[in-house]
Write a protein that binds this DNA or RNA. Structure first.
Lengths: 242, 242
DNA sequence: TTAGCATTAATTGCATGCAGAGCACGAAAA
DNA sequence: TTTTCGTGCTCTGCATGCAATTAATGCTAA
């Protein structure tokens, strides 16, 4: 059934990651969550990979107990799938999942934008303006790499501006998976132009404290982004110049 | 600092819950999650209660390992709070949290209603109509208890009608905490009348496939519900309209 | 009597051990 | 050659054991 079927286990990824000096005050399971999340969205643990507890615990330098706790948490985020008496697997994003994901993010970010339009302070808006300026500079310079980082920070600032912990948490949980989809279909220059323009419009709506417009624009922006990702992901044909 | 400070541990709740014959095919940690969630939203485990691993594991008839996995998941849901080297505590809902919670639910349900307006089949709508009719019957009869169950099912049907798993998951995660707030402030007869009427308007919007109206009405409905709960919870005085 | 300190009991965090389930491989039969 | 059953190994799920951390308690001294 599956084309990418590992024999039984043993993806044999010599990941070997431990010793996080900065954030050492957290529990092992929490560090494992962060590390594994990074490995998954970073692509080091590819979609469909089997996560064998013994190997992973050895690679992370921890025992299976905190690792299993971390795996449960990642499964709750949807990054991996748990199957009874089977190795957990890194979730495979099907096009339908990506579409649903961005629908959900669009809805949540619209709600945050509407709240943020009323609740962001001038300092917040100034920060957003600065990021927008920086982003446009990168855009003009053609620096695509920093764009993603800026994009992430801008969306995060708007979400934080809503001052709503549940919405923030829900957004963060979905964002990891969205990042996972994002790295599959990057380099869409045309979409990049649109995206920067949309961000500017969103900023202006927030500055005008226009909640409806901010929410609508941000929702549409996320929807467009999702559609672009989906287009670059689902039918990769029609560009078979190779 | 805390008024409800248990000595050190030992809430000594002889909960003693296990042996779920129906859903025996799930892992122990998952059953523990469901059971504990029920105990928390049901009020058997009151807000602020210390959850000592040894006692709970004995009460549930499982060992500490799956229990700890369950506790991590409940903490991710926000139902309990984990503190380093301390017993987890059932989360105490402050008024600000309730307000934020219902803001978030309003935003998410609006998104689901907009999608559901396009995606619900005639069968779904028929089911909604039946529930609405039943609800109105209970309303006329003054049966308050079934109202909550119907209300829950109606909102669940709309959320399911959106055909969006991430939104459904996010909604479910928040819903447990909302239920927790709900059982604190019940018996608001006036709000009950409004609520039934709002539900009817939402149903009509969905039947008309009017996504904007459905989303707006449902969002407002949830907001009103949250406000009513908050009013019955935070300042029980100052009910000017009474 | 009160403040400070050492002691002690209890609880969490993590590691390890063991039994059960599932898959792969191989042998035997059609 | 293909199919089916048996065998063994690996991995998960759960329980238990041990050390570190914490808070309560009793003691001593001012």
């Amino acid at each position: 059934m599956e084309e990418v079927r590992r024999p039984r286990g043993r993806p044999r990824k010599p990941v070997l990651l431990q010793a996080e000096p900065g954030l050492a005050r957290l529990g092992l399971h929490e560090r494992a969550v962060q590390r594994l999340r990074g490995l998954i969205v970073g692509g080091e643990l590819p979609a469909g990979a089997d996560l064998v507890e013994t190997d992973l615990s050895a690679a992370l330098g921890i025992s299976r107990t905190p690792l299993r706790e971390a795996l449960k948490l990642l499964a709750a985020e949807g990054l991996i799938e748990l199957r009874p008496n089977r190795s957990p697997r890194v979730t495979e994003l099907r096009p339908g999942d990506v579409a649903a994901l961005f629908e959900a993010i669009a809805g949540i970010e619209r709600a945050t934008a509407e709240l943020a339009a009323h609740r962001m302070g001038e300092a917040d808006l100034a920060g957003l303006r600065a990021l927008q300026t920086e982003m446009e500079a990168h855009h003009r310079a053609g620096a695509l790499a920093p764009y993603f980082a800026l994009n992430h920070r801008i969306h995060g600032l708007i979400v934080a501006g809503a001052r709503n912990a549940p919405l923030r948490d829900a957004h963060d949980a979905l964002h990891a998976r969205a990042e996972l989809a994002r790295r599959r279909a990057l380099g869409r220059r045309a979409r990049w132009d649109e995206s920067v323009a949309e961000h500017r419009a969103i900023l202006e709506a927030l500055e005008a404290r226009n909640a409806d417009a901010a929410g609508r624009l941000l929702s549409e922006h996320v929807t467009h982004t999702g559609a672009a990702l989906l287009a670059g992901l689902c039918p990769p044909a029609a560009t078979d110049a190779a």
